[in-house]
């Protein structure tokens, strides 16, 4: 498997990255490369220029900023998994990171890459959606903060414009309980269905692989708000959601799994 040809430059700073990405319409950032390189090997992605942001070590950090935690976009999954700060303040994120792919993938993949890729089958985006995180991006027109709910738009589509760089992920504190259920057949695989449930004041529920992007379960959240039991709320989990069918599960089975896993997750919360 050989990617088709492309040019390659290393970004020396955030500004440099922005400049380089603007130089070519078909250019793409590469962080860990663990979403991009597999696609390029099959020539499903054929960027003409790669701007490597892997050397921007300043963007690799996990900080306590009072009411929220700030995670640099280039923080690798393995660092999220093993961070003592996260394990103390936001253990859910460490746990979810520990379920991504396999150790080798976690040694390379970055949280920013995972979020920017915006794959509905990815674990971290759905978890961040349930956590009401927000994404900090910088681009030619400056720095902006995008709430997770507005960030994931569709199949591999996010609110980032092609010339914007995701630099940080802000996750609010105050999670009183959480649950993450990843259902798959082999440990290394992507979730067939995943459910992230978070209690932080209200209860939020988000799904992995129930649609082309990470999704919030409005049916379940509405039901809970109006005082429904766990069973009733779980029953409404897939309301308005039409999950895909693939080799691992039909759409119908995904709906069923979503309900079962939501119920189990909610039971763990209480």
């Amino acid at each position: 498997m050989y990617p088709s040809k492309f040019d390659y430059v290393r970004a020396l700073s955030v500004d440099d990255a922005l400049e380089k990405i603007a130089s070519d319409e078909e250019a793409k950032f590469i962080a860990g490369g663990h979403s991009l390189v597999p696609l390029m090997k099959f020539r499903l992605a054929t960027p003409s220029l790669l701007v490597d942001i892997g050397g921007l070590h300043d963007l690799s950090y996990i900080k306590d900023e009072g009411d929220h935690l700030a995670i640099g976009a280039l923080t690798r999954h393995t660092e999220v998994e093993h961070s003592q700060l996260l394990q103390a303040e936001l253990p859910m994120l460490s746990y979810v990171a520990s379920l991504v792919g396999d150790p080798q993938v976690r040694h390379r993949g970055t949280i920013g890459g995972s979020v920017a890729h915006g794959d509905g089958a990815s674990d971290l985006p759905a978890a961040l959606l349930a956590l009401d995180a927000s994404m900090i991006a910088v681009g030619p027109s400056g720095r902006r903060e995008i709430p997770a709910k507005e960030f994931f738009k569709g199949f591999l589509e996010t609110a980032l414009s092609p010339d914007e760089l995701l630099v940080e992920i802000k996750v609010p504190k105050g999670v009183s309980s959480w649950s993450y259920k990843k259902f798959n057949r082999r440990a290394q695989d992507w979730a067939i269905v995943g459910v992230a449930a978070v209690k932080n004041g209200s209860t939020k529920v988000a799904f992995v692989n129930m649609g082309s992007s990470p999704l919030r379960s409005t049916g379940c959240e509405d039901a809970l708000r109006s005082g429904a039991t766990i069973e009733e709320a779980a029953e409404r989990a897939a309301e308005g959601i039409e999950p895909p069918s693939d080799l691992n599960a039909s759409s119908e089975f995904r709906v069923h799994l979503a309900k079962v896993l939501t119920r189990r997750a909610l039971e763990e919360l209480s």
């Binding site: 057949r185 082999r186 440990a187 290394q188 695989d189 080799l247």
Partner: peptide
């Protein structure tokens, strides 16, 4: 539909 090892599920030690 599943010629690769991503889709053809050869089990690992974990299973």
């Amino acid at each position: 539909l599943n010629p690769s090892l991503a889709d053809y599920l050869v089990p690992s030690a974990a299973e």
